[in-house]
């Protein structure tokens, strides 16, 4: 089974980084919070997660030494754009560690959002009809927000906590509903549904997310919950990459 771990970690970690940066940007709009938190540590987390994600992506390449040439095809390739945008995102995160300013914080957030959108387009190939749509973008955006709201120091803050609970509910429903929706589709969709439903990482991931949701509801300490969300996202992402059927696997057979 090829779980595409470089892509799993690349997407999950960059999404965590974007999520945290969005919460941080939201906080910038609320002056009462200033001074309560260690912004430097938070932006350091964002930078480290984004960098680890980008590093992980290198393991996906046959020739990582020439990784920079992946930025060549900006005019055609969402993958090129994805690399560039996350590079810029990481760059602003780095600046925010040392010289945080509203401009740089919002710049990071904007590139982060762009990154998620582009990622949603990159991993929605025409060859995988069940996810050749807005599904990846929705999963990625929800994952980013769930990760962001559960991994920040502000996770215990009331507004964030409510938001997180709500987002987790949506993410779990979306992920769990997908295979059941596909069951009503064509052969390729049905077979993908069967693969997802029989995938151990998938159900493991859902379990992690549900557990995190329960903790969020009863207001438990956040670090375990944050890690649970991360684990849930990573496990479900493994299924996303490994068990979503490609049209080429059924050539000669009915679709």
């Amino acid at each position: 089974m090829n779980y595409e771990f470089p892509l799993v970690f690349f997407t999950a970690l960059t999404q965590a980084a974007v999520g945290i940066s969005l919460v941080a940007a939201w906080r910038e709009t609320r002056t009462e919070c200033i001074g309560l938190f260690s912004f430097r540590r938070e932006w350091l987390t964002v930078f480290v997660l984004a960098s680890l994600g980008l590093l992980a992506s290198l393991f996906h390449l046959g020739d990582p030494k020439r990784a920079m040439t992946a930025l060549v095809n900006l005019s055609n390739s969402w993958l090129s754009r994805e690399g560039l945008v996350f590079g810029i995102f990481a760059f602003f995160a780095l600046i925010n560690i040392f010289r945080r300013s509203k401009l740089f914080v919002f710049a990071a957030a904007v590139f982060g959002i762009a990154g998620i959108v582009i990622q949603g387009l990159t991993y929605a190939p025409v060859s995988m009809p069940v996810i050749s749509n807005a599904v990846p973008m929705c999963i990625f955006a929800l994952s980013a927000l769930c990760l962001g709201t559960s991994l920040t120091q502000m996770a215990e803050e009331n507004g964030v906590s409510k938001m997180r609970t709500f987002l987790l509910v949506i993410l779990v429903i979306l992920l769990a509903a997908l295979p059941f929706v596909w069951k009503g589709g064509d052969v390729l969709s049905q077979e993908t549904a069967a693969l997802w439903l029989s995938s151990v990482p998938f159900w493991g991931g859902i379990a992690c997310l549900v557990l995190a949701l329960v903790m969020s509801l009863i207001g438990r300490r956040c670090i375990v919950m944050g890690l649970l969300v991360l684990a849930g996202v990573i496990l479900c992402r493994m299924t996303f990459f490994a068990d979503t059927l490609h049209t080429a696997t059924r050539i000669g057979m009915p679709y």
Partner: peptide, 13 residues
């Protein structure tokens, strides 16, 4: 550079 994105993307393998 062997990113395999084309392999993921081509519906015909």
């Amino acid at each position: 550079i062997g990113c395999t994105n084309c392999i993921r993307s081509c519906p015909y393998g």
